[in-house]
Each structure stands twice: as structure tokens, then as C-alpha cells.
């Protein structure tokens, strides 16, 4: 039931208009971070206030909302955000990726390919890909305007010199349509290829840092690399122990005091639907059999 003491989707209309204008400019200039007057939300900065504001500005009553954190629908912060929108927008919710019209995510892109008409909203902590190389906003803004991305390549190259390969495993920087270097939020680099040419609209919201950016559908997104060190979207060399999936991103779980480990899909909906379809992993039979 919608809470009548707040406006539809919590935000007042003026705030939504401001956010909507920022989203449209973000769509018009893919990968460019549009400043917006992020509001103080009733949840802490760093816990998805940017994503929540973008979702709130996009939702219509007919939407079906899915919220995931680390790929899972039932992690505490995902539960909390889903509940917020159930209460303030009264929208239907789902755990099934295919049924959702809007998906708010933290740190993952769902395994199942997204479709036209879906919107994926990312929660972003630090939207500036150059931030850890140059902490000043006044400087990084200039670097983006001049397309001066040498510093980023130097950093990646130094990684190679020191470690033999690029030492960035998540929030791996990308170049959008050959123009802006963009932070894809802290998704594992395994997810990076899904950013490019997606039929879905991807929106990124950073509340504390007051930035919104976007990837329209079918936008070309390239992970930065070198000819002799091509981008490698690797993941743990295991199959899911519950559903047997070989190509999904895995959580590592420590199962006993001796340090035994198992690997399970981080995308809980993907894993569940595979198991329902009869797929069984190394330890899945026992789990499914209820022994």
C-alpha cells in the first residue's frame, strides 16, 4: 500500500523535474557526468541515495521493480530499498530479472540478458573514474573536457610494469563511444562486456557526489586496455556448486572451520531459475534433496 503522507515515489515534483532534466542530458551525452542537486534522502549517503533518486524520478505506477545488491535480491540493503519503493510508490516488485521493468542494482549486472524497455539503475559511490589519480574535481573536469586521459593509461601501464597485468578488478574504467572515460560503478570487470550494446537503458546515480550519467541502449562501451594486454573479464575458475553454471559470476563461501569453500552464483535469481529448470551443481543435489 502506498504511504499517502508522501508524494508518489517520495520525491516532490520539483525535485523529480530537476533529476529528470539531468537524466535527459545524461542520455544526450553518454558517459558524461551531469551535476544534479542531489537531495538528502531518508537513507544514508553511500547506501544508494543516487540510485534511489534516479529510480524515484523514473518510476511509473505500472512498473515492476527489482532491487539487487551484490546480485542478490535478499541482501539487507536491497530489501530495505525495495521496501522503500513499495511503501512510497506502491509499485509491484519481483525477483525475476525478465519480469522487471526497472532494476536498481549495486555492484552487479544481472546474468540474464536485459531486454529493450528495461531500465537498469546503478548505485554509484565515486562516479569520477579519474578520482583516485587526481582527487580534485576542478582538475578532472578539465581533463574530461580536453579528453586528456593519459593519466589513466599511465596508471594501467604502471600496473602491468609492477604486476604483469592490470590490477583493477572492479570499477574497471571504460570509454563510451570513443569519447568519455566512465566509471561503471564497482561492478566486477566480469560484468563490463554487458555494458556495451545493451538493449536496455542504463542510468547511473551518485547521490553524495551529485552526479547522474547514462548509457542509452546500443551504446558502444569499451574497457580500457592495451594491444599487448587486452582486457580480460575473468572470474573464479569454477562452476556454481548449486546450479552448475559455468559462465556466471560467483560468490565464494567459507563453509566450515577448516576453511572449505564453495562457489555459488552471486545472481540469486539466475541460480534459482536454473535449479528450477533442473540444473544441478557439485553440491546442489544435497541442497535440493533436503537431506
Amino acid at each position: 500500500m502506498t504511504d499517502q503522507s508522501y508524494n508518489f515515489a517520495y520525491l516532490d515534483e520539483q525535485t523529480k523535474r530537476m533529476i529528470r532534466r539531468a537524466i535527459l542530458k545524461g542520455v544526450a551525452v553518454p558517459g558524461y557526468q551531469v551535476p544534479f542537486a542531489s537531495r538528502e534522502m531518508p537513507m544514508p549517503y553511500g547506501w544508494g541515495t543516487g540510485g534511489v533518486q534516479v529510480t524515484a524520478a523514473c518510476l511509473v505506477p505500472e512498473d515492476v521493480l527489482k532491487v539487487i545488491d551484490q546480485g542478490a535480491d535478499d541482501t539487507t540493503n536491497a530489501v530495505s530499498i525495495r521496501k522503500f519503493f513499495q511503501r512510497t510508490a506502491g509499485v509491484a516488485t519481483t525477483e525475476a530479472t525478465a519480469e522487471a521493468t526497472v532494476i536498481q542494482t549495486r555492484h552487479r549486472i544481472p546474468e540474464q540478458a536485459l531486454t529493450a524497455g528495461q531500465i537498469l539503475v546503478y548505485q554509484v559511490p565515486i562516479p569520477e573514474p579519474l578520482r583516485f589519480l587526481e582527487p580534485r574535481e576542478t582538475e578532472t573536469r578539465k581533463m574530461h573536457s580536453l579528453e586528456e586521459y593519459g593519466l589513466m593509461h599511465v596508471k594501467l601501464y604502471e600496473d602491468i610494469a609492477r604486476h604483469g597485468s592490470i590490477a583493477t578488478a572492479y570499477a574497471y574504467p571504460v570509454r563510451v563511444e570513443g569519447r568519455y572515460v566512465m566509471d561503471p560503478s564497482p561492478i566486477p570487470k566480469f560484468d563490463n562486456p554487458k555494458l556495451s550494446d545493451s538493449p536496455a537503458l542504463q542510468l547511473f546515480g551518485a547521490g553524495r557526489e551529485q552526479r547522474i550519467y547514462a548509457l542509452p541502449p546500443f551504446t558502444r562501451v569499451v574497457s580500457l586496455d592495451f594491444d599487448d594486454h587486452p582486457f580480460d573479464p575473468s572470474k573464479a575458475p569454477h562452476d556454481c556448486d548449486l546450479c552448475g553454471a559455468a559462465e556466471s559470476y560467483l560468490d565464494e563461501v567459507i563453509t566450515d572451520d577448516a576453511g572449505s569453500r564453495m562457489f555459488v552464483c552471486s545472481d540469486t535469481d539466475f541460480c534459482r531459475s536454473r535449479r528450477e529448470a533442473g540444473h544441478v551443481g557439485r553440491l546442489g543435489e544435497t541442497a535440493g534433496g533436503g537431506a
Binding site: P125, A167, I187
Partner: peptide, 27 residues
């Protein structure tokens, strides 16, 4: 702002941590 961002590091970070874990094992 500072409190929110500081305290958010107690939220689940399994996914990014896992990606670092894989990378450091490989390196």
C-alpha cells in the same frame, strides 16, 4: 555525507572483494 560514505563500507562488498581475491590469487 561523510558518515554515510564512511559507514557504507560495512555494507556487503562480496562481489568487489571476490574480484580482488581472484586477481590477487592470479598475480
Amino acid at each position: 555525507q561523510a558518515t554515510g560514505f564512511l559507514e557504507h563500507i560495512k555494507l556487503p562488498h562480496y562481489v568487489d572483494f571476490q574480484s580482488e581475491l581472484e586477481l590477487i590469487r592470479k598475480l
